[in-house]
């Protein structure tokens, strides 16, 4: 009986590791930018190409930076969620239109139920995206009043993620 015990224990430990590994999403890489100041940028705005947007314009506000593109399929999934969030006026949403064409981006917003963003910044060559460690669109960053990144969500934002993680943290940051 005892000779089976050792292999059994080894098997259970190994199976435990593998089971935990299966539940992890390999696409979710923890960002080293959490707790760091938001990377600086100064980009033209999507709708008014003679105006710029920079993080210092948002100092004193808790805001979301949502990386999106008209070619991004999962962005369609999160778009209604962002529109609903904008309707509630609970938080400022800034878009980062990533490696996109201006006309395609503007059309996409019209076709998909509207524009939830206060402003969208045009990152045509994806350079600012790299500074944010963007590798899969959509990605969403929560930034506090002092311009520090507090949370990053990879993949489409869902109502559950907003309710469970992003909005409670945003409320806490607004109070503090």
């Amino acid at each position: 009986m005892r000779r089976f015990l050792f292999p059994l224990v080894v098997f259970i430990v190994l199976a435990g590791f593998l089971a935990a590994g299966l539940r992890l999403n390999p696409r979710e890489v923890p960002s080293p930018l959490i707790g760091k100041p938001v990377p600086n940028f100064r980009l033209v705005q999507l709708h008014t190409s003679d105006k710029f947007i920079a993080p210092e314009d948002l100092r004193g506000k808790v805001w979301l930076l949502n990386v999106w593109a008209s070619w991004c399929v999962s962005c369609r999934q999160e778009h209604p969620v962002l529109i609903e969030l904008d309707r509630q006026k609970r938080i400022t949403i800034i878009g980062l239109n990533y490696k996109d064409e201006r006309s395609a981006a503007i059309n996409w917003l019209q076709q998909h139920g509207g524009d939830p963003y206060l402003v969208s910044a045009v990152d045509a060559d994806g350079r600012v995206g790299i500074d944010f460690g963007v590798y899969g669109v959509p990605e969403t960053f929560l930034i506090d009043k002092n311009g520090v990144i507090r949370y990053k969500h990879i993949g489409p934002v869902t109502a559950e993620v907003l309710k469970a993680k992003i909005l409670p943290l945003a409320d806490e940051l607004s109070r503090g």
Binding site: V29, P30, S31, P32, L33, F132, G133, Y135
Partner: peptide, 9 residues
């Protein structure tokens, strides 16, 4: 690269 993407990169 590490500053932006972490050690995983």
């Amino acid at each position: 690269m590490v500053q932006r993407y972490g050690d995983f990169v």
